[in-house]
Design a protein around this nucleic acid. Sequence first.
DNA 1: CCCGCTATTTACTTCAGAGTAAAAAGATTG
DNA 2: CAATCTTTTTACTCTGAAGTAAATAGCGGG
Lengths: 238, 238
Amino acid sequence: MHRIEPRADCLSLPVLVIAGRRETTLPARPRKADAWKDAGQSRDEQFAAKRAALIRKAARAFSARGFYNTSLDDIAAELGVTKPALYYYVKNKEEILYACHLISNELGTQAMTFAESLPGCGLDRVVALARRYVELLTGEFGASAVLMEFDALQPENKKTIVAGRNRFDRRFRSLIAKGVEDGSIRKVDPKLTVFFFMGSVNWMTRWFRPDGTFNGQEMADRFADYLQESIKARSNQT
Amino acid sequence: MHRIEPRADCLSLPVLVIAGRRETTLPARPRKADAWKDAGQSRDEQFAAKRAALIRKAARAFSARGFYNTSLDDIAAELGVTKPALYYYVKNKEEILYACHLISNELGTQAMTFAESLPGCGLDRVVALARRYVELLTGEFGASAVLMEFDALQPENKKTIVAGRNRFDRRFRSLIAKGVEDGSIRKVDPKLTVFFFMGSVNWMTRWFRPDGTFNGQEMADRFADYLQESIKARSNQT
DNA sequence: CCCGCTATTTACTTCAGAGTAAAAAGATTG
DNA sequence: CAATCTTTTTACTCTGAAGTAAATAGCGGG
């Protein structure tokens, strides 16, 4: 019997995943995928790996099709198991969503910490943040992390997630404010700027495919570039 | 008995609406709102007005909380009636969503037609499009129109809506491409630029409140400004 | 090769919310 | 003020998907 206490620490193990298109008929029990057959680990490692794979499949599905358009049967089918098997790894659907949000916040924090550690003017750091964040979102963990379904979270979890997001927002704004102060960024409203940029990024998770016209790195470069151009100070203007 | 054939022409009649926060308990039957008590019209006019009010309340709710987080009971309660009453005006929930998408597309077309009719360089027209579009979205019809739940539409309707959206996208891209040609816009990828900007706008509908820090007009100005700065050509660069 | 633990399945229950039927309440008109 | 049409309600049904119980299959050690 495995513990189902909060254990969202399983952000590990890269798993190759092909973004699946919605099927009209559930393809009854396809061959088990990825982590589900990868052997050669301790029991606890396997548990963690499988849980992580589950979360990441779900994250991709949620990002691409939305939380409510993704049933647990869908996820289970994609993993090659049946729905109740999922309940061995998570308590309920909400916990999956929560785990996804945790990843999302984690990536944000990572990008932020990186950006804040950089030398240079405010603009440079803001742009670095943007680039790194998009890189992370489009990278290993897939276009998986940015979710919008806060309302489906339990109040307790929602509080945690929203708090994390707010922290990210504040640091982002503060970075922008510093840029305005040091003269590298033109006079923009930090809050609005963050909303503007984050909107683009949130939306990206809905259409981005790693095998599309642009890969993750290119997306990161271009998004960062848009942001940079839209906020950088120019000699000949306010 | 009233016909329930496709009749999504009811985009009329401004109705004052205060964005309602989600209630844990459904406030049982509050006083009827707005159009529901406005008398002094022919029957057909009343029908149209009420249907329009219904669609617009729903549109706001969908935008703010999402399609699946909004039950018909919610909408009915907000209007001060019971759920079955809604079925007198629409065939089902999907039809409401479809009507919302039609409004959304309509606003896009309006903004686009306006922008294309302008003289001036590509950049000017692109910026005018952005401003007008945000103006419309945040205006009379509220932050109501941009929806993301394409998947909940019937295949037939989905086709229509997606086609409309694609048309908008193409015209938007084409405007950008022209700007690049005439030298007013720097070398950006039109498609990506559209996605970038539309993401911000889509996201805006989730948080914008007319009574917030910025009103609709300010939002329009600032979003247009961000876009302008991010894509305009400069003398001293590529 | 049997025991006990891990993992997954089959076969359910439950519930929210979409949708419907039929009765009741409101209008409008002769 | 009855007759009839319009609108809304009460009281349901139905369904999809979340979630659970209990049986079963697989595995590692003794």
